[in-house]
Design a protein around this nucleic acid. Structure first.
Lengths: 243, 243
DNA sequence: CGAGTTCTTGACAGTGATCAAGCGACGTGG
DNA sequence: CCACGTCGCTTGATCACTGTCAAGAACTCG
């Protein structure tokens, strides 16, 4: 579980990465793009179940996910765990560490993964040189703040089925943005992890899946989920708009 | 409610502001400090109940709170409201707007307030010039992300009394950092607003206050709260550490 | 001083948690 | 390739915390 992960020396450039539009700013000419490649020091592989970083670990780098799927989670002193997010290809992970120079959550790979290691010092240096990169980093952080605002709404105001509907819609939307199906999902996380993210117990998550399935809104078979009636899901998530 | 707020032309400098250490980076020499004064364009007064900015409004500036107390909140399509934070003197408000150039929440003054208007363009320009300022802004955003992670833990895993204990401890700690009492609070928000922040109904908040009061942990009289037994509060918030 | 807002408290209801049992999928090793 | 063990998932029964509804008290502010 805790073993050090393989550090790879392959130096691969953002400039010819097909995920560039997801994790890097757009609008660079090819010359500047070369310089921008310096944000990525190395790549690193993380096996399923392994930590990308852990709570209390020193913060040095942000990570751009190239392949794979992560969860971030925090635990309270008495051992209760809260999943704070699920991250997929093209997303940036590690922002929690900036404020104190130590990570305040665990990042765990839910499937074998590869990340680009971006030393934060490089990011800050290049941000001073390239306003586009500076702006991009600000937007990445602001986006995370806004996402968490939305989660607070989920956790504070929504009922179990609304939360799950919102979760599925968000997931499918992000997967679709990556060229995957708008209707079919293979979940990378357990019912318990979904429940932790949504402030529910795994049984409640399971029951909500079953209910949606009975109502013909989705088809569920373990980790496989097919969305049959996305409008019905949106209606559950957001009743008023549809009344 | 929505009327435009008074824009004041008084140009006041960070360099001789007693809140500088709360909202600005430390370690500047006096010459650089002069330049840093350029982040603040003007000040603005906001009356109790008025909006500092509203959901959907164009984002141009961050605001540093000089005096007063704010809440930020979002509403779902069907009108449910979620308070996403309470902000006090020295704190920065408006980070939600960076990602899309539009604000995604409402910021409402809970008492008459004055803020420093910091055009974001100024902040970005000066951040490129002053690494200390750049680092500071990154930390401010990261701190907000980490704070929201903590709220997710509250909302997802804690029970009503744990949430209220955490809320009171957090509030008193922030007030103490501003030179106010460690034991006495005058709440600026209603039970309903506290409840919204904590994912509870106002009656539940009221009952938790009453329970703490009966147990001799706090003394409550409407908005006035005195913490008699902070250790008991910490124990409620975080049971395991004390067993 | 009075109207309206905020807060408290009680009674009851409902959503989701808890406890429990069994099923199904998957991976490993014989 | 099959048997078996483990882990994850489903489903049922019951319980408890918090929500809802209601009424009245206390406070605030014009």
């Amino acid at each position: 579980m805790n073993q050090p992960t393989i550090q790879e020396a392959i130096k691969v450039a953002c400039s010819n990465c097909n995920l560039r539009e997801l994790c890097m700013p757009v609008g660079f000419d090819s010359e500047d793009m070369q310089k921008l490649d310096e944000v990525v020091a190395t790549r690193r592989r993380v096996k399923q179940g392994d930590l990308l970083f852990a709570n209390g670990e020193e913060f040095t780098s942000l990570f751009a996910i190239r392949t794979g799927f992560f969860k971030t989670c925090i635990s309270s002193a008495d051992g209760r765990e809260q999943v704070t997010g699920f991250q997929m290809a093209g997303e940036i992970i590690g922002l929690d560490g900036i404020v104190s120079d130590f990570h305040s959550c665990n990042a765990i790979a839910l499937e074998d993964a590869e990340v680009c290691v971006m030393p934060f010092a490089n990011i800050e240096d290049l941000s001073r040189e390239f306003p586009l990169l500076q702006r991009h980093m600000h937007k990445v952080m602001s986006r995370e703040i806004v996402r968490e605002n939305g989660v607070m709404m989920l956790l504070g105001n929504m009922r179990a089925e609304e939360r799950l509907a919102a979760f599925l819609l968000n997931l499918v939307q992000r997967l679709h943005a990556r060229g995957l199906s708008q209707t079919e999902i293979v979940l990378r996380m357990t019912r318990e992890e979904i429940g932790s993210y949504l402030g529910l117990k795994l049984e409640t998550v399971s029951r909500a899946f079953s209910k949606f399935s009975e109502e013909g809104i989705i088809e569920v078979k373990q980790r496989y989920v097919r969305i049959i009636d996305p409008e019905a899901l949106k209606k559950i998530f957001n009743p008023q708009t549809y009344c």
